[in-house]
Design a protein around this nucleic acid. Sequence first.
DNA 1: GAGGTCAGGTTGTCATTACAACTGGTTTTG
DNA 2: CAAAACCAGTTGTAATGACAACCTGACCTC
Lengths: 253, 253
Amino acid sequence: MGAGRGLRDAVLDRTSPVPLYYQLAQSLETAIRSGRLSSGSHLDNELELARQLRISRPTVRRAIAVLANRGLVIRRHGIGTLVVPVKIRRPVRLSSLYDDLAEAGQAPTTRMLAFETVPVPAEVASSLQVSRGARVLHFERLRMASGQPIALMRNFLPLSLAEIVTEGDLRNTGLYRLLQRGGIHLRLASQSIGARSAQPREAKLLKVPSGSPLLTMRRISYDDAGRSVEYGSHVYPADRYSFEMSVVSDSTT
Amino acid sequence: MGAGRGLRDAVLDRTSPVPLYYQLAQSLETAIRSGRLSSGSHLDNELELARQLRISRPTVRRAIAVLANRGLVIRRHGIGTLVVPVKIRRPVRLSSLYDDLAEAGQAPTTRMLAFETVPVPAEVASSLQVSRGARVLHFERLRMASGQPIALMRNFLPLSLAEIVTEGDLRNTGLYRLLQRGGIHLRLASQSIGARSAQPREAKLLKVPSGSPLLTMRRISYDDAGRSVEYGSHVYPADRYSFEMSVVSDSTT
DNA sequence: GAGGTCAGGTTGTCATTACAACTGGTTTTG
DNA sequence: CAAAACCAGTTGTAATGACAACCTGACCTC
């Protein structure tokens, strides 16, 4: 069955600097999320899509590959491309908690607990690729949403970023947005998620009983050029926070 | 600088059923992991690689795209492709704990606590896409590694898989391997990672103090065809377990 | 010396073409 | 009637060609 009707409207703009394959991927994604392409239905086949949109099949394939990598569709050799059923769809994005909350309409606020330069702690030095004894930027923030504390975040950054990341800016926006504005393009992060009991200070700040379970995340972020940009060690009250992610097995293309 | 010397040996086998781009991706990956391609160095440029290996540039690009998606290399427009520094490299694979442990030489063992069919619990029904009131396969396992309990795993599966997943098999191998052997190809999972305190029964089984922090994971897995295959609800002692993952920002290609 | 300009090299995008491999249903065959 | 063979439809792999966009470093100008 042809499920691609709503797409002929999705005109592709050949003059736009946005690549055609990406324009198509986005219009397919909105079609899926809006329900115009219903769960489990077939996409039109690749040749048909190419014909309809007057683009080549490789371009169509590349657009579909983007969706497949995000887990929105599943390709089946000899069968076709299917829209993934129900409403999974939760990427572990390389994004900031601040933006995620703002997007969800939660009006996040930030309380600065520390902002200083310190000698780099041992376990941070190797991660940040700075020499031992060097000084780094350190700050600690308490993130609130809807009046409730939701995260206690400690970060270490190379001193070279001190111009981009200032105390005032951090009060009003997320770290990742600041970095982006400063021309730092994050590309990769490695993170570790664990749990432990709240220490007294953490418990008090997060307004949970001492000893109650916390989610912990340690993250090291790298930019375009492979430089390490940030070391973060964050804790979240377990009853107010969890990590959602979808995992796709290698589909390559 | 040309860092692709070790690759001319990496002969590509055109008669193999393994795609050329994938053969190349793998030989590049081993070259990187073995250190033959050192951190931060440039890969030979795409045209050069294509010439050396007698394949087309799109095929080279596709191979590099695989590595970029895994976060092993970073492409920079106008610059080249760089090998990612240091030793991050930890995918959240769609794999089983059993295999991961076995791979790490931990000799995992499994203790079956339950294996039965039960009426499907409400919150499982919607996830597994079975009608309410239907019966499903349910089992609970305690996974040990090096003599210590490391995970308490509760799973629900559609009854149709009862032939593939038997009690005896589960004692000796992981669920995912069983499914694969049964012709089920997992493609996608959505999971949620959180934390909470250990209940008395959990604490006893996992040999931790009651009330101590546990990592929790809830996972729903889907196969090729988009059918939901498994609902899993697992808990891990926080001091013996954590999730490692690397996150790559959309690099599309 | 500081700044702008330009050229060369690199990855990014896209079209076109061809064939291989897989799936599911239909037809043929035993 | 059942099993095998075939066929149409679909995605997978690969080559070739062309041009655009981008970055760096060298050169030139002021």
